[in-house]
């Protein structure tokens, strides 16, 4: 089971990799979204703020998110480290996403472009 600290570390790693990828800056230049990341087993929530092609990790989750990504800490940590694609836990029902289908698929594009 991943801890809150490990999840936070994975999100910061995601932030670093995302911001280092120039293609993502181009692709998401006008995709401004607030994402709430919710670990259901360790009961912790963080946030990601995507704005003008840059992502920022948020210690405090956004109050009015565009997208809520919820799963157990281990799945979320593996996902943000790029060890699994969001599609897999999503398809088997482990990962719950609340928000627009467009945003969900964009999030998958992002992970595909960072980690292949």
């Amino acid at each position: 089971m991943a801890t809150a600290e490990e999840l936070k570390a994975s999100l910061m790693d995601f932030e670093e990799n995302y911001n280092a990828n120039p293609k993502l800056k181009t692709m998401n230049r006008d995709w401004n979204r607030k994402v709430r990341v919710k670990a259901t087993d360790v009961e912790v929530e963080y946030g990601l703020d995507l704005k003008d092609g840059v992502v920022r990790f948020l210690e405090q989750p956004p109050a009015e998110p565009d997208l809520v990504v919820a799963s157990d800490g281990e799945t979320l940590t593996s996902m943000f480290y790029g060890e699994v694609s969001p599609s897999e836990p999503y398809m088997d029902g482990t990962l719950k996403v609340t928000g627009s289908e467009e945003d969900l698929i964009r999030l998958d594009f992002v992970t595909a472009m960072i980690w292949g």
Partner: peptide, 14 residues
Amino acid sequence: ARRRPVSTEAAAAA
């Protein structure tokens, strides 16, 4: 190898 180290207290608690 790239995974960020986490605090020992948090790891111990887990």
